[in-house]
């Protein structure tokens, strides 16, 4: 390895131990604001729009991925399942036995399609953050979790109204049973706030925030590792910089695996909370 290649490598890298070199610039939240492609840029014309950005393209990719997964695993169904079929059956049975049945009960099998599609869709959107060259979780844009949370919100209110009737459902949801009358003026606004405002908001923001933070963390590790990679800074400093860079790379890899777990967990928690809200709306209390 000649000094030329080291220099070449150092050129792209950062300027650790380089006097007067570029300072470290942490990845900004700008990575969550990809600029729209020129052919889809209508964001100037319409308010509150962003145009066709990387998010929209990754959304299509994620949707296609889920659709392909569904087609591929349930194309040929048999009583004795093939491996492909088993994958989807495991997903369905996992959601049924871990989410739907404990939260809603056996009646909850009606909502199984909703929960399965929520889980698969969110997991596919999350996993976009780990696929090389795409590397942007779709759910790190608040617009998408808000849409899903709105679907769940409308669903559980509709389920509550259909099961108990309009008046009874809102009374049971807003007025806690067993509370003395004098404390109700205090409790009712809190219940309204927590059940109908904070609940959908946190439902969406939980997913968004974890994906956002996780991606930012990974980006920081990658940028920091690259910044510290400076082998041309002399024998001692060069070695130290490579060691630093290597530890950052190691952390990046570990946190990538961690992110995968988080992505699964967030899809699971989102689906679980959706089932929980539907179950609460369904049972009178």
């Amino acid at each position: 390895m000649s000094a030329d290649t080291l220099n070449l490598a150092a050129e792209g890298g950062g300027g650790l131990f380089t006097p007067g070199g570029p300072g470290f610039e942490a990845p900004s939240v700008g990575i969550f604001f990809p600029s729209p492609w020129s052919w889809g840029d209508y964001s100037e014309a319409l308010p509150y729009t962003s145009g066709i950005t990387k998010y929209a393209v990754l959304l299509v990719v994620a949707t296609a991925l889920v659709a392909f997964f569904l087609w591929w695993t349930t194309r040929k169904l048999a009583i004795v399942p093939s491996r492909k079929q088993s994958i989807f059956e495991i997903v369905v049975l996992f959601i049924r036995d871990q989410i739907s049945r404990p939260m809603i009960g056996v009646k909850g099998d009606r909502y199984l399609p909703l929960l399965v599609s929520l889980f698969l869709f969110i997991f596919a959107m999350n996993i976009m953050g780990l696929i090389p060259f795409l590397q942007l979780p779709v759910t790190s844009n608040l617009s998408y979790p808000v849409g899903l949370a709105a679907v769940v919100y409308i669903t559980f209110i509709a389920v509550g109204i259909r099961t108990h009737g309009f008046g009874r459902y809102f009374k049971s949801a807003v007025v806690p049973s067993g509370a003395p009358a004098w404390i109700l003026p205090l409790l009712v606004p809190i219940e309204i706030l927590s059940n109908f405002i904070i609940r959908p908001a946190t439902h969406a923001i939980r997913l968004f925030a974890t994906m956002f933070a996780g991606h930012l963390l990974l980006a920081t590790f990658a940028a920091g590792g690259w910044y510290m990679f400076n082998p041309s800074a002399g024998p001692l400093y060069g070695t130290i910089s490579v060691l630093f860079s290597g530890s950052a790379l190691l952390a990046f890899i570990i946190f990538t695996a961690f992110e995968l777990v988080i992505m699964f967990l967030q899809a699971f928690v989102f689906t679980l909370l959706a089932a929980l809200y539907i179950g609460q709306a369904q049972e009178a209390h």
């Binding site: 319409l46 729009t49 998010y55 889920v66 844009n141 617009s143 849409g147």
Partner: peptide, 26 residues
């Protein structure tokens, strides 16, 4: 931010997947 177009895209994509799961897979 909540961008209306992205919200609508997301809902359409979810509707596609939900239709697939509801009508076909599950």
């Amino acid at each position: 931010r909540i961008h209306i177009d992205e919200l609508v895209f997301g809902l359409i994509a979810f509707a596609v997947i939900f239709a697939l799961v509801y009508r076909y897979a599950v």
